[in-house]
Amino acid sequence: MKKGIFFIVLAFLSAGVFAQGEVITSYFNKYADNDAFTKVSVSSKMFSMFTEMEAGTEAEQEFLEAVSKLKGLKMVMADSIADAKALYKKATADVNKAGYAELMTVADPDQSMLFSIKENNGIIEELVMVVGGGNKFVLLSLYGEIDLKNISRIARDMKVQGLEDLGRMHHDKK
């Protein structure tokens, strides 16, 4: 009897270990047959290949540095769905329910964003981003050892390079 209880407890504990990326995995399954959603997964093996690459520019260096400690990336995206806002709400609820700690939210009439993390001993092990608005939706999960500072630097470096593109993209949308 005691043994049985022990194993049941063990089973629950191990379920917690496998919980990483559970939200995104469930969305993978949910929209497996829906072509409106693009599903992408980059494995840890691929990430280890990235680290062997030579960095040309400083931005590249920054990028590779941020990537070097990552173990996986999963994304579910859609750019032409009718109820992106509702899906965003559902996804954020799922993320909150899964025990992620909210890092940042941006609520906008056009588009909302949620960043949530899972921490272990002060190290961010998973970062979940949900974006939704209009007819676009993104659910993204990064895992491994995540350095937010490093990641946030990527855009700053890129922004300098891509400022002209940014302007052009605005016009493209209209």
């Binding site: 990235f50 990537v67 940042m104 588009q111 993104v138 993204l140 700053r156 993209m169």
Partner: peptide
């Protein structure tokens, strides 16, 4: 690599500025 770059850029710009870069981000989608 390209996917990862785009994804990280999306996360990165989101973390940095919130809505300022939202148009850019959405194009990244």
């Amino acid at each position: 690599l390209e996917l990862t770059r785009n994804a990280l850029l999306m996360v990165s710009s989101g973390l940095n500025e919130g809505k300022d870069l939202s148009a850019y981000q959405l194009n990244q989608i």
